[in-house]
Design a protein around this nucleic acid. Structure first.
Length: 341
DNA sequence: AAGAAGTGCAACCGCGTTCCG
DNA sequence: ACGGAACGCGGTTGCACTTCT
């Protein structure tokens, strides 16, 4: 048995709102408020509309200070970074953008921003990055043990930080090079072939951006209360960025399958300034990718362990289950080699 | 000029969550 | 503690408008 309908659908008007209906609803709410009961409201006003429809019309269109269209670059950036952190939680994203509604942002994302993000730069950057990777991998393939190619660039190259910090434990943050941003991408089929198939192709790690900042309280604006319980200033340092990994639940809705190779999913990356890791770097694949460590030839990890390869939001939602084991001495040693000429 | 295809967006739908008696 | 009502949210739909062929 289904739920009882919220209104008599045969006797309510549907479709676009007329100016008269808008005026009635607006005038009433401005004078009396909603009364905490949307279902009863249309009857009071004499509108033949469903209460839910009234609520939607008010929230998305009639209430004061609503902005429509004309999203700024800054708003674009916020939406993108939030989407990568938390997925399609439109109401939460809208809460960070005054005057914007979840419906507006959702529509904007689906019709424009997603295409913009995945579109124009893709082709030429992929070509450049793949070509550079090939050169680099050939040079280092003897002792390059990871499936992914991992690169570092300094955070001053960031145009701006991502909105939501992830966190890493404080004692480990001390060991980490300050202000590093990591970008990783899987090898293309061509690259693998060029390297004698010595690299397995798995689709988990596409790109990640992290910067390691000075210690401070977790700044997660989504859920400060719950965050402060688990991300206390003494325990964690923030990372201004995200690791975008399709195996991590909070990114599961991001269209990773539309990305390829050294794509990156924000505009922070400047491939002509990439610097590479040493070929002896080792990464515990099981923890980054979620696949079995037995299936890899990942080397010994004299381990710097930092666990939250997830956003702060994620951490606040559940205990950390994944960890990333890194050999600090090599993983964070940035060599002054430019990958891309 | 006209029909087809694409786009943008307001509105609807259904379901999970919250509230309250 | 329970159940019904209402709320809030994300996904989807429908339609007007624009662009393409």
């Amino acid at each position: 048995m289904g739920r009882a309908p919220c209104c008599d659908k045969a006797n309510v008007k549907r479709g676009p709102w007329s100016p008269e209906e808008d005026a009635k609803l607006k005038a009433y709410i401005e004078q009396y408020g909603t009364g905490g009961n949307w279902i009863a409201l249309p009857q009071k006003i004499g509108l033949r509309r469903c209460g839910k429809s009234c609520r939607l019309r008010w929230l998305n269109y009639l209430r004061p200070n609503i902005k429509h269209g004309g999203f700024s670059e800054e708003e674009d950036s916020i939406i993108c970074s939030l989407y990568m952190n938390i997925g399609s939680r439109w109401s939460i994203i809208a809460a960070q953008l005054p005057g914007r509604t979840d419906n507006d942002i959702k529509n904007y994302w689906n019709t424009k921003l997603k295409k913009k993000l995945l579109g124009k730069q893709r082709k030429d950057q992929r070509t450049r990055a793949a070509s550079s990777l090939k050169q680099e991998m050939n040079r280092k393939k003897e002792n390059f043990m990871t499936t992914e190619a991992i690169h570092v660039l300094h955070s001053h190259q960031l145009q701006q930080p991502l909105a939501f910090p992830a966190v890493i434990p404080q004692q480990q943050a001390h060991d980490v090079e300050d202000q590093a941003v990591i970008i990783a991408g899987k090898l293309s089929a061509d690259d693998q072939q060029a390297n004698g198939n010595s690299f397995n192709n798995h689709n988990s790690l596409y790109s990640c951006d992290i910067s390691f900042g000075e210690g401070q309280a977790c700044e997660n604006p989504l859920s400060m209360a719950s965050c402060s319980q688990q991300c206390s200033p003494s325990s964690y340092y923030p990372i201004h960025g995200v690791i975008a990994n399709s195996n991590i639940p909070c990114y599961s809705s991001f269209p990773f399958h539309e990305l390829n190779g050294m794509e990156y999913i924000n505009n922070f990356h400047q491939s002509d300034t990439l610097q590479s890791f040493s070929g002896t770097d080792t990464v515990n694949r099981s923890t980054i990718t979620g696949t079995s460590p037995e299936s890899t030839s990942w080397g010994d990890t004299n381990s710097l362990v930092y666990s939250p390869i997830v956003s702060c939001y994620e951490i606040c939602q559940q205990p950390i289950q994944q960890s990333c084991t890194l050999e600090k001495s090599s993983y964070f040693r940035m060599q002054q080699e430019t990958v891309l000429q």
